[in-house]
Design a protein around this nucleic acid. Structure first.
Lengths: 149, 149
DNA sequence: TATTGTTATACTCTATAACTATA
DNA sequence: TATAGTTATAGAGTATAACAATA
């Protein structure tokens, strides 16, 4: 059980507020770090990220995930297909549905983005003291739990 | 100097990656918690946030801040003015410029949003153990430094 | 003459409604 | 008959170009 050695900064109310502002600020900066070989819209980036996690999704699933109506998702996917980022294929059993998958190019792009962001974060981390990095190392899994649904 | 008592989870590379994913995930959830009495577009929300920090900005400043062209910002501000969220007034010395400020209603809305998000975070924090909260208490100022430009 | 904001116009993106194919 | 996706059409938002007022 860790002793509270460093400064006891905040009450429980203050802690929420401090975490809110720093998390939002940091995320904005992380989001800014990306490789835009194609210049993607916000929704296209969202589709890319969703498919990166779930591997294959139908048009309908993508539409609800991105909070967009089906006709709009049809268009978004068509544009991304022309850009060589996704591919359509028929659903295994239900011939009404269309399954959308990432192309190799899209996978490369996603990996490049993650790498870019990690590199940026690593240079920021290098500017901290070893003690501060230790604190973050312990905090990382807690933040992970906090971010879990 | 704090002893490393808890699990030593990650290498420096892994730390960046873990922080990236948890920060992004957490920020998405925080952003989702908001009071939408008026239903605002992303850009309107951006203007609201910018004016919340800087108090008064010209059309041009808002345009560059929101990465939008001046004619678009003219339109956005006009819509928000009709919605009673902002007010225009002439610049003190330079009569070409227009200064935009938040109305009282907008200030209330911003405060309500912050409160809503903090409440949501507090209920999430309550589900952690006291030890985990201590870790976050120590991590908060470090995250603050990390998020600083 | 340069700069700030606005107006006019064209383009892109999204939503609603109607349509096709499949369950 | 209901559901998944697409097509057609209309509305909202943005950008480029042209303009008015001020520096």
């Amino acid at each position: 059980m860790p002793e509270v050695v460093a400064q006891q900064v905040k009450s429980d109310v203050g802690l929420a507020s401090a975490l809110r502002s720093s998390t939002l600020r940091l995320s904005r900066q992380i989001r800014r770090q990306r490789v835009d070989s194609h210049d993607l819209t916000a929704n296209q980036l969202g589709v890319l990220g969703a498919l990166g996690k779930h591997d294959a999704m139908t048009i309908g699933e993508l539409a609800t995930h991105e909070q967009v109506k089906p006709p709009s998702m049809t268009r978004i996917v068509s544009n991304m297909e022309e850009a060589g980022l996704v591919a359509r294929r028929p659903h295994e059993t239900d011939k009404r549905q269309i399954v959308v998958e990432l192309t190799d190019a899209a996978h490369h792009l996603l990996r490049a983005n993650r790498r870019r962001r990690d590199e940026w974060l690593q240079t920021k981390l290098k500017k901290l003291t070893p003690e501060e990095r230790d604190i973050l190392r312990k905090a990382a899994p807690v933040l992970e739990r906090l971010a879990a649904p």
